[in-house]
Design a protein around this nucleic acid. Sequence first.
DNA 1: TTATTGGTCAACCACTCAGTTGATTATCAA
DNA 2: TTGATAATCAACTGAGTGGTTGACCAATAA
Lengths: 114, 114
Amino acid sequence: MLAPMLEAAANLDLVFHALSDGTRRSLLRRLSDGEKTVGELAADYDVSLNAISKHLKVLTEADLVIRRKSGRQQILNLNPQSFGAVREWLQLYESFWRERLDALADYLAEDSGA
Amino acid sequence: MLAPMLEAAANLDLVFHALSDGTRRSLLRRLSDGEKTVGELAADYDVSLNAISKHLKVLTEADLVIRRKSGRQQILNLNPQSFGAVREWLQLYESFWRERLDALADYLAEDSGA
DNA sequence: TTATTGGTCAACCACTCAGTTGATTATCAA
DNA sequence: TTGATAATCAACTGAGTGGTTGACCAATAA
């Protein structure tokens, strides 16, 4: 059942845009090791904390990242759901993708066999 | 084996950026029905042929689309490989994603059972 | 040859983006 | 209270975006 999440397809704009930046993808990677604060994340980068804060805002608005407050700190976590949205979108092309690669593999196998 | 394609990760910037636009995602969908020329694709949209041509350029530079010439026409096709690159990137998060959703499902099942 | 058509290139516009610096808010510690 | 810290907000800059129109090139058709 693909429909439900895809109806929120306006979000795909936000999600893919969020993922189009290497720094933001890197932030997601670090978060996949466990939750972190803004400051902890920013410490690993050359750019200002402000820049990281803005990247995290983009990730949050794309629902790729969830935040909760703890005192004056923001604690960030990956949100598995939005990754699911990308995964679902990609599945639209999964069959196409697999068929063609299989066909290519077959062709190459045949070719090397002959 | 994830390494090979991910080394070409500079491309992920291009790929995700290409996917961040609804018109471009729509173009990919139409191409998944089979190859088409620039003009055929453009006919389905309100914007100028020039705008579509530029969108197709973005998709081509991200390797999501392949072109071949036939007379004065450009014939466009999906390129299954780049979809594979996205898929591989996503698989970095697949386990995380699945674990968390499973945990959530378990929690909800437990909750409704009690 | 001369038109016509398919498509790209070039220049421009309003808008957005990633980054900066500096001010601001909210929480913790003296 | 006062001061330091975590993080966001505000305003700005240079670069890039999606869109336009008009010129241009290549291939078909007259």
